[in-house]
């Protein structure tokens, strides 16, 4: 599966557009991480727990988006974007979306 945030892929040509695919995940806070973050907020530095949270959320959203693309019979997702929305206090959504397409080598 090709996944890019550009509108084309070098050396490939778009055969068919399958439409918008999306994936999301809503994550909530975690007491242990909050406590560690509170301490880190005194001494400064990276909040590794939150970086992981963001990375996991992004990975899951992309996975779900790819599953949708696969179901549509696509082999590429173009122009991928991410957004987040706050759901309630202490919970946030990571949303990935893109255009599913069928691509093939341009020389074929």
């Amino acid at each position: 599966m090709y996944v890019v945030n550009t509108e084309s892929i070098p050396g490939m040509r778009i055969v068919q557009i399958k439409g918008l695919v999306q994936g999301n995940t809503v994550r909530s806070k975690h007491f242990g991480r909050d406590f560690a973050a509170g301490l880190k907020n005194i001494v400064g530095g990276e909040l590794k727990g939150y970086t992981e949270l963001l990375t996991e959320a992004r990975r899951q959203a992309v996975e779900r988006m790819l599953a949708q693309a696969q179901q549509l019979g696509a082999n590429a997702v173009l122009n991928v974007r991410f957004t987040t929305s706050a759901v309630t206090t202490g919970a946030a959504e990571m949303y990935a979306y893109g255009t599913a397409a069928v691509v093939e080598p341009a020389t074929a």
């Binding site: 890019v4 050396g11 490939m12 907020n41 990276e46 691509v103």
Partner: peptide, 21 residues
């Protein structure tokens, strides 16, 4: 020139940096 073998992929990076007191 761009390598036309169709190798292109989404890459990402995340970082959360805290303030100090």
């Amino acid at each position: 020139s761009v390598d036309p073998s169709g190798h292109a992929r989404l890459v990402t990076g995340e970082a959360v940096i805290s303030s100090d007191y």
